[in-house]
Each structure stands twice: as C-alpha cells, then as structure tokens.
Simulated scan of single mutants.
Amino acid sequence: MWWIYALLSAVFAALTAIFAKIGIKDVDSDLATAIRTVVIVILAWSIVFYKHAQHGLHTLNKLNWTFLILSGFATGLSWVFYFKALQIGKVQQVAPVDKLSVALAIVLSVVFLGEQLTLKNGLGALLIIGGTIILIL
C-alpha cells in the first residue's frame, strides 16, 4: 500500500514542477514560494481537522517537536531553492536534479538511521547520482 502513496506523491510532485514553472513567470520566486506555502498550510490543517487529528497535538514530545520543526525548515529551504532553480532553469533539468534527494535520502538513512543498504537500493542510488551528473553536464 505504501507504494500507492509514493506514486501519488511522484505524480503531484511532477505537477508541482509544471504548475510552478507556469506560475512563477515574471514573479519573484520567494513570493511564489510564500503563496504556495499558505495554500499548503490551509490544505494540511483542513485535513487534520477533517480527520480530527488535532487531538494528537498534546502527545508530541520535545523530540517530535524538534525534528518536525527541523523538517519544516529543510522543506522550506528546499522549496525556496527549487522555485529559484525553476525560475532560471528548465523543468526537464531542475526536476530530475531535485530528485537527487532520493539518493541522498538513501545514503543519509544508512548513516543517521542505521537502515540497511541493500544492493538494489545502493545500485538505484548510484544510477540516480549518475543520471543527475549527466543532466548537469
């Protein structure tokens, strides 16, 4: 079941690149990122309230808060740089290079989370890295 959500994430990420490229024409990329963020905040909290998940706020501990906040900063910076790259580059170049994050996540999951690196995952990461280098050059 996880792969269905991951596939949907990929589809919407692809649409994000297309919609963003059209939307940032003649617009400051930071302003565009801020507008996108407001929409995401409204959508995310709407889902939380629809599911009545807001009641779980009191169960979050200091570690949860720390790493969710750090994740928010990382996401925000990722969006700022992604929109800037889209504004000056082609979607066909920017989106695949952005997906280098997949290979980086594999490496970081081994280093920081102690996850096992399988031959399949390692080979996949190397192929992504190789593809990214080809696109950049």
Score class of each variant (00 low, 15 high):
residue 97 V to Q: 01
residue 51 K to N: 15
residue 71 S to V: 04
residue 40 I to N: 13
residue 9 S to I: 03
residue 110 V to I: 11
residue 122 G to Y: 04
residue 97 V to N: 01
residue 42 I to F: 08
residue 78 S to R: 08
residue 64 N to M: 04
residue 97 V to A: 07
residue 4 I to W: 00
residue 4 I to A: 10
residue 38 V to M: 12
residue 3 W to Q: 11
residue 81 F to D: 02
residue 89 G to N: 10
residue 4 I to V: 14
residue 52 H to Y: 13
residue 43 L to C: 13
residue 66 T to A: 04
residue 80 V to Y: 08
residue 52 H to W: 11
residue 89 G to L: 13
residue 59 T to F: 03
residue 96 P to W: 02
residue 111 V to D: 11
residue 14 A to T: 07
residue 80 V to D: 05
residue 84 K to C: 07
residue 33 T to V: 12
residue 117 L to M: 07
residue 34 A to Q: 14
residue 90 K to D: 14
residue 122 G to A: 06
residue 126 L to C: 14
residue 20 A to L: 03
residue 19 F to E: 04
residue 16 T to L: 09
residue 104 L to R: 03
residue 125 A to C: 03
residue 21 K to C: 02
residue 19 F to H: 08
residue 67 F to Y: 13
residue 26 D to L: 09
residue 73 F to L: 15
residue 12 F to N: 01
residue 133 I to G: 07
residue 85 A to Y: 09
residue 3 W to E: 13
residue 113 L to N: 09
residue 92 Q to Y: 05
residue 17 A to R: 05
residue 1 M to S: 12
residue 95 A to D: 12
residue 23 G to C: 05
residue 31 L to V: 12
residue 128 I to T: 11
residue 15 L to I: 01
residue 71 S to K: 10
residue 128 I to N: 10
residue 84 K to Y: 11
residue 4 I to T: 09
residue 68 L to W: 06
residue 84 K to R: 15
residue 79 W to E: 09
residue 26 D to Q: 08
residue 16 T to M: 07
residue 95 A to N: 09
residue 77 L to F: 15
residue 18 I to S: 00
residue 114 G to V: 05
residue 16 T to K: 06
residue 38 V to F: 10
residue 89 G to Q: 11
residue 108 L to E: 07
residue 35 I to H: 10
residue 39 V to P: 00
residue 41 V to T: 11
residue 64 N to R: 10
residue 90 K to A: 10
residue 51 K to Y: 14
residue 54 Q to N: 13
residue 117 L to S: 03
residue 58 H to D: 03
residue 48 V to R: 02
residue 14 A to V: 00
residue 13 A to Y: 02
residue 42 I to E: 02
